[in-house]
Each structure stands twice: as C-alpha cells, then as structure tokens.
Design a protein around this nucleic acid. Structure first.
Lengths: 225, 225
DNA sequence: TGTCAAGAGGATTTCGATATTGCGCGGCAA
DNA sequence: TTGCCGCGCAATATCGAAATCCTCTTGACA
C-alpha cells in the first residue's frame, strides 16, 4: 500500500519530482535503458510516464529521437513569464471576485504557513528549502482556488509548474536585489481579502516579474561561467 | 509516403479525426480490442495515441478503467466558452497589437477563402461542410497568428479544438436564430485591420457566445428526445 | 583529399503474450 | 427473501523481445 494505482503513475510522479527537484538537468536526454533500470519497470511504462510529462510541458519528445527534459532559455523564460502575468492575473481577478469566506480562510491559513516557513534549508543554504517551496506553491494555489472556471485555473496552475523548473535554479530569492518576498506576499493577501482585484493583480504581476529578473540574472551567470 | 513518422502519430491523427468528425460519439468507451483492429496495430500504439488525445483533452482516462471520449455537458460548454472568451480575447488583442503587414495579408486571404466557401455540404445539408469547418478554423487561426507569446497562442488554439467537439453537434449555425455569421466574420476582420483591438475583442466574444447559445439549445433538444 | 555509400552499433518503436485488476453472476447461509 | 462471499470472465496494465530507424564510422572511388 501507499503506492499509487498504476505503475505508470508512479514513474510519472517520481520522474516529475526528479526533474522539478533538479536531480536531472534541463536538456538532459532521457534514454529508455537508463529509466527502466532507475525505476525498475519496462519500456512501456517509462513511455507512459514520459508521455504524461510531455503533456505537462516538462519533457519534450521528438519522434524517432526520444525524449529530453525541456531545455531552459532566457527567451522561453520571458515567454513563460508574460503568459503567467496575463493568465494568472486573469485567474486571480476571477478568484477574488468569486471568493467566499471559506476561500478567505484557506488563503489566510496558507499564508500563515508560508510566512512561518524558513526559506533556506538548514543543510544547504544555497538552495531553497523543500518545505518553503511547497508552502509557496500552496499559497499561490490558494490565491487562485476560487476561480470558478476550471479550465483557466488548471492552465494557470500548469504554467506555475513550468515555472518551477526555472525557480529551482535560483538561489534563495530574497537575497537577490534586496527583495522583500514576505512583504510582497503579505500585500497580496491584503489586497485579496480587501476585494481589490485590480491592485492584487498588479502586485502579482510585479511579484512574477521580479522573480523572473532574479532568475534571468542567475541563469546568465551560470551560462557564462 | 504521405504517412507520418510513427505509428502512434497515425493513430493519434486518425482517432482525433474520428472524434472531431463525430464518427465516435462523446462519452463512448474506447476499448483496446476495438481500436487495435480498427487501426491495425498493437495495444502499445493505441495506448500512445490515446495518451496524446488525453493531453489534448479530447479523451479522458481513468486508471484501471480505460479510456473514453470526453463527454459533453452544458456546464462544461459554459466553462469552455468563458475560458475561450477570456483567453482567446486576450490573444487576439496581443495579435492585433503586434500584427505586421504579412499578418494582415494572411488574414485577408483566410477571410476571403472562408467567405467563398459554402457552409452547408451538398450531400448532407444538415451538417456543416468539411471545407467550411477547415476554412473557419484557418480564419480564426490567422486572427491569432500574430500573438508573440507562444504559450498563450497554443493554449487558445487548444481551446478552439476542444470547442470543435461541440460545434460538430450543431447544424449549420447560420440557420439558428437568424445569425449573420459571415457578417460577424467581416466585422472582425475590419476591426482587426483597423487596429481596433478593443472592438475586435468585443466582436469575438459576441461571436463565441452566440455560437455557444446555438449549441446549448441544440444539445438540449438532443438530450431530451 | 573530398565525397558518398555501405555497414555496424545503439536507441526507439512496435509487437504479442502474460500478469493483474475490476466486475458480475451464482451459490450459500441467515 | 436478503445479504455476503467466492469464482470466472473481460478488459487493462505490464513485460521483454523483435523489428525498425537513426547516427556515426569506415572504406572505396573520383
């Protein structure tokens, strides 16, 4: 027990975690031989998992040439950030306009949890802590949760996932450019609870663009070393 | 020649065509045994094709229970239409703001082709002609083509595909509610070429909502018979 | 020396069969 | 009659090998 329903699902979850956590680098070729031994299953199952990752955009496939982890680039990051500003902003507006008390409560709870979680991990202060990443993801998910449109919400969350791949390669964000990430989150919650959708969307876009700038700088530093 | 690269791709294209053209009805269970004989290939390949359809939203999968064509419902149609109005409107605005002369030319060409294509097919006047459907799809694709953001454009087109599944179940739209579909398209082109993004978006949303209403009425009539 | 063709090797794609899972029918006891 | 347990069937998930395809190398020929 404790396992998921199918083997393909397991591979999907495991490989997804490996990609998002940075254990396999963007651009890496994913060979079937490696994966079958790594996850102890047949090529069919690996293929299933890769296919699911592909639909999420974390993996790319070229027919007859196999699969590789979606490469990162500054252009793609720019594309992704613009898409997120527009779509996530839209979903946030709808969420605020339709949010009820239960939504507000869940949002406050998620924000509290995030605010009380350390950003840097104890063991390795150069990378962000797993707990903070999760809490951060949950917080932004809670912000969008009241959007009544299932498709738009799903797409916005999918874009957040794609961004996670980039966020991994940044160090603790707070240290770059003297940002006050906690303050940004607090302001977001405030505007949301006040029902000020326009202000909240503005804050969110700022939040996303700032993160992008930090990542772009970091990535540039990595690619030129 | 004329064949696509892999067998899985073929199954994907064929099955997709079968679903979009209405040869297999929404909600239908897709058994492997049937599909392997229908497309003359193994279960693995069928699985590959179904997986790709799933990522596009045309097919749903429940672990251990197989696949079925995504069922249609009035609620889902409402959800889809709202999502399209918001997202496609956004993409259209960006497209108009960034469109150059080449885009305008392609748009004019696509509109001309659409305007000169008959909506009703000769053989079966109750269903829309294949040619018109294609021209219609190309026209709306041309409208969005100049949006510089790859992700947003792709998502908008994906939503259009999903809507195709519904559109199939409507008769020739022009006959319902005394609509002037050709006029709506012409007005859209006019606003787009004029660079009036706000007006174009308004026209597009109207266009989409009208189609939805026609489909909703039709579907209701079918479900109660 | 440069170009092209043929072949070996490695990787992906496809196959057919086996293992596993879920569902329904029938029997048995209360 | 009703409810529950267990067996059998059908469908899906998984496997491991065979077939197919791509790439890189080698060698011959102009």
């Amino acid at each position: 027990m404790g396992g998921t329903a199918t083997r393909g699902e397991q591979v999907y979850v495991l490989l997804r975690a490996d990609i998002l956590s940075g254990r396999v680098l963007p651009g890496t070729k994913l060979r079937f031989a490696d994966l079958t031994t790594r996850y102890d299953c047949s090529t069919s199952v690996v293929r299933e998992g890769l296919s699911r990752l592909t639909e999420q955009g974390l993996v790319q496939s070229e027919p007859q040439h196999g699969f590789r982890v979606t490469p990162v680039s500054e252009d793609d990051l720019e594309d992704l950030t613009t898409a997120r500003c527009e779509l996530e902003g839209l979903v946030l507006r709808m969420s605020i306009e339709h949010g009820d008390i239960a939504w507000e409560s869940a949002l406050v709870a998620a924000h509290h949890a995030l605010d009380r979680t350390a950003m840097e991990s104890d063991g390795d202060p150069v990378v962000m802590s797993e707990e903070w990443t999760q809490a951060h993801s949950r917080f932004h998910g809670a912000l969008l949760a009241a959007c009544p449109n299932h498709r738009l919400r799903t797409m916005a969350l999918s874009l957040r996932d794609a961004a996670e791949l980039y966020r991994r390669w940044s160090g603790p964000i707070g240290h770059d450019q003297h940002r006050d990430v906690r303050g940004e989150h607090r302001a977001l919650v405030g505007a949301a609870l006040r029902g000020d959708a326009a202000e909240a969307v503005r804050l969110l876009e700022d939040h996303l663009r700032r993160t992008t700038r930090a990542l772009g700088a970091r990535e540039h530093a990595m690619s030129t070393r």
